[in-house]
Amino acid sequence: MGILEVKGVNKRFGGLQALGDVNLSVQDQSCHAIIGPNGAGKSTLLNCLVGKLIPDSGSVMFDGQSVLGRAPHEINQMGISRVFQTPEIFADLTVLENVMIPCFAKRDGAFRMHAIESVGGEVELREKAEEMLREVRMLDKRHEHAGSLSRGDKRRLEMAMCLVQEPRLLLLDEPTAGMSRADTNSTIDLLKEIRDTRNITMCIIEHDMHVVFSLAQRITVLAQGTPLVEESPENIKGHPKVREAYLGEAQV
C-alpha cells in the first residue's frame, strides 16, 4: 500500500475524457514524478487529489482515508500541501507573515477566533517560521513584502510555507515552469535537499526532463488521460511506449 492510492479515476469535461481509469500508487517517502505531453491530464489529476475537482468515478485514498468530497482546506489539514505552477503566496504580507500563517493553520486548524492575542506574542511560532526561512536561505528577507521578491525567491517562499506545516505529501505542479536555468537549478537543489533530509513524500508534475531525472525515484507517464507506464527513471528513458507518446515533442 502506498501513502497515496488512486484507483479507477475517471473525469470527463463535456465530450472530453480528461482522465480515463487512472490507477496510481505513490510509495511513502519517495519522490514520484508524473510526466506526459500537453493535455495528458496531469493537472486534472492533481486537481482531483487536492479537492479542486471531484472525479466522476474512482477513489483517491490518502493514508487510508478518502479525500474525495473534502474541501481543499480539509485535505491540507490531512497532511497534503501543494505548490502551484505560478507561486501562490500572500503578496501583500511580509515574508515572515507568509510563513507564520501556515504555522497558525497547522496549530489552530481551519478557523480560530484569536482576535485579542497579538501576533508579536507568538514567539514559538515565529521562531519556527524563522527557522524554516533560514533553511531555505531567506531569513534576511523576512521583513520584505512577499510581492516584491524575485520569481525564484517566491518559489522558495511558497516551498517554505508548505514545508513548515510538515506535510506528509507535497504535491508540486511544474515547480520550475517559466524559470531561468539558474533558478531551475537552485530549485532542484532545494527539492533534493528536502527529499533527502525530511520524512516526506513528493509527487511532482513536470515538463522539464532535466528536473524529473534529477529528482524522481519513480515515474508515471500519462498520455491522453491514461497511465502508460510506471517505471524507475533508468527504465523510462528508452521505453518504446514513452517514445511513442512523446514522438516529436521532446527527446526522452
Partner: peptide, 12 residues
C-alpha cells in the same frame, strides 16, 4: 491577499 493560497494552507 490570496484566498486560493489560504485554502491550500488549510484555512477556511
Amino acid at each position: 491577499s490570496n484566498q486560493q493560497r489560504m485554502r491550500y494552507t488549510g484555512l477556511n
